[in-house]
Structure formats: structure tokens, C-alpha cells
């Protein structure tokens, strides 16, 4: 049987209203063969967890520019796990200082991509990491 496309949710938590960067990632992932669900800006952790559950995604990508990543990213991971989504891969991107990366990874964010990361790097990362055992 032909290979089934992997599903990725891209969400923008926090209050910043720009989603140009997120949409660029969405398109790059689509062109790399992923089914990408985009939920838009100003998403609460509850909304992101509910969408991830209903869409049965393999990974959740979070994009954030506003600087609230240290509270929002761990909160989202917590919500996902609480919803029973233990295996869903969580990755993030945005303007995130180096010293925040290790604590975020400890909080369950599998990988943090800095600004200017080539899109191909995100694609190969996902292809390498997924699928997690469903």
C-alpha cells in the first residue's frame, strides 16, 4: 500500500498577530508531502490540545514571537499529555534565546528552531523523527 501522509498541526499561541512565518512553514511542509492543519493566531493551550486530539496529528509545531514561550510551550506540552497525546512530537520556533532551549527541551519540547533555520532542516527533522509508534 502507498505511504500515508503524516499529519502536522501548526499553531501560533500567544498574543502576537503576525503569522507570515507560520504560513511559510505550512507551505513548505505541504510541499514536502505532509498534511498540515493550520489553526491560526492567538491560540490558547486548550485550543491547541483539542485541535491536536481531534486531528490525530503526529506532531505539533508552535510558532511564537512574543516572548511568552517559557510559560506557553510547557503549558501546551502539559495539556497535550493530559489529553492522552503522549507520543505527539512537539517542536517550536521563533525568537527564543539560547539559554531557554535546554529548559524547554526538559519541559518536553523535542526541538527548538531559531530564526532563519532553513525550512529543509525542519522537513528532514520531521522525516527522521516520525512516525512515532501509533
Amino acid at each position: 500500500m502507498d505511504k500515508k501522509p503524516l499529519r502536522i498541526l501548526i499553531a501560533k499561541p500567544g498574543l502576537d498577530g503576525h503569522d507570515r512565518g507560520a504560513k511559510v512553514i505550512v507551505r513548505a511542509l505541504r510541499d514536502a508531502g505532509f498534511e498540515v492543519i493550520y489553526t491560526g493566531i492567538r491560540q490558547t493551550p486548550e485550543m491547541i490540545a483539542a485541535a491536536a486530539l481531534q486531528e490525530d496529528v503526529d506532531a505539533v509545531g508552535l510558532s511564537l514571537l512574543s516572548g511568552a514561550h517559557m510559560t506557553l510551550f510547557p503549558e501546551i506540552v502539559k495539556r497535550l499529555r493530559k489529553a492522552g497525546l503522549r507520543d505527539v512530537l512537539v517542536f517550536g520556533g521563533g525568537i527564543i534565546p539560547d539559554e531557554d532551549v535546554a529548559p524547554l527541551e526538559k519541559a518536553g519540547v523535542d526541538r527548538v528552531f531559531g530564526p532563519g533555520t532553513p525550512l529543509s532542516e525542519i522537513v528532514s527533522y520531521l522525516n527522521e523523527k516520525l512516525p512515532v509508534a501509533r
Binding site: 501522509p5 511542509l29 491560526g40 486548550e46
Partner: peptide, 15 residues
């Protein structure tokens, strides 16, 4: 692949 963007319009019902 696919860009599935409809959900964006009805996020008020997400939770």
C-alpha cells in the same frame, strides 16, 4: 501533502 486551513475559521468551537 495538503494545506488544511478550514479549521482556522471555526476555532471558537475548538474547546
Amino acid at each position: 501533502g495538503a494545506f488544511l486551513g478550514d479549521r482556522l475559521r471555526i476555532m471558537e468551537h475548538a474547546t
